[in-house]
Design a protein around this nucleic acid. Structure first.
Length: 271
DNA sequence: AAAAGCCCCTGGATGC
DNA sequence: TGCATCCAGGGGCTTT
């Protein structure tokens, strides 16, 4: 589910509300992708300082240490004054003096991991190879083009890999490539400098718009107040197999790359 | 170093 | 209605 926009919408939904709170209790449900890495009772009494985002990870800074939280494919967070009885897929509760944060994640590809600091091995393992933040960091077109040039894999898969630019997942990779007029199968190394510039611009444009619209809700994503996003209503190609291209009317095609679906307009994305 | 495949897991849609 | 199969917003890990 969650790509950069969904994670950012989630972050904005509770960051200010939880900042300054002290942790009162922690409840774990079924195991997530990785163990928490700390005895839950040791978190009690610590204070939440801030909530940041790095790629698709949320970083919950505590006055001592931090929690790295990932939503995986099916995760979502709610932040409420008081928690209801935990459901079958509620696998992590962080109860604080200002409200409770709850992770619901049916597939359990998500994770909450404690790290003593951002430079601790547990954090570096997860964050160390991440690429540039497309929305907030100055990403020179030279660096982006150079990064593409040294990769022979299809550009779609290079975008998904996350080591060049972070936050672009399966929906927004297809969307950005459509906007830039680039075929997802094109080898990244063959993208010219002007086209790389268009692609970078398209990535920023589509991610920013998706944040504005509350992200994409295909199945189960919702923000921390339980509300759905509606970017999917604006999607140009994603999940639109066989439907007419919104620009030229040609039926949208679906292909498979690395066991994931890609969508494209064969006419608007000629190469 | 880079690329390709393989998993982790549950639930909804589809087909027989 | 029942059951099998396929597919899904991710990404770390292992193997080429």
């Amino acid at each position: 589910m969650p790509e950069l926009p969904e994670v950012e919408v989630t972050r904005r939904g509770f960051a200010d509300r939880i900042a300054g709170a002290s942790i009162e209790s922690v409840r774990l449900g079924k195991p997530l992708r990785w163990p928490l890495g700390i005895e839950p009772s040791k978190l009690v009494g610590r204070k939440v300082v801030a909530v940041r985002r790095r790629g698709k990870y949320l970083l919950i800074d505590l006055d001592r240490g931090l929690l790295l939280l990932h939503l995986g494919m099916s995760g979502s967070l709610v932040f409420t004054p008081a928690l209801a009885v935990a459901g079958a897929h509620d696998h992590f509760d962080l109860v604080t003096s200002r409200g409770a944060l709850r992770l619901n994640d049916p597939r359990r590809f998500g994770a909450v991991v404690h790290a003593a600091s951002e430079s601790a091995p547990e954090a570096v393992k997860l964050l160390g190879k991440l690429g540039v933040e497309p929305l907030t960091e100055g990403f020179a077109i030279e660096a982006f083009h150079a990064g593409l040039k040294r990769r022979k894999a299809p550009v779609k898969q290079v975008l998904l890999a996350g080591d060049l630019v972070v936050g672009v997942g399966n929906i927004y990779a297809s969307e950005a490539l459509f906007i830039a007029g680039i075929r997802p199968t094109l080898s990244a190394s063959r993208i010219s400098r002007p086209r790389a510039a268009r692609l970078l611009d398209a990535i920023r444009q589509v991610l920013a718009r998706a944040v504005e619209t509350g992200g994409s809700t295909l199945r189960d994503f919702s923000n921390t107040d339980g509300q759905a996003g509606y970017f999917q209503l604006e999607a140009m190609v994603y999940d639109r197999k066989g439907q007419p291209c919104r620009v030229c009317g040609t039926p949208i095609r679906q292909i498979r790359q690395g066991q994931r679906a890609s969508y494209l307009c064969p006419r608007c994305q000629k190469s």
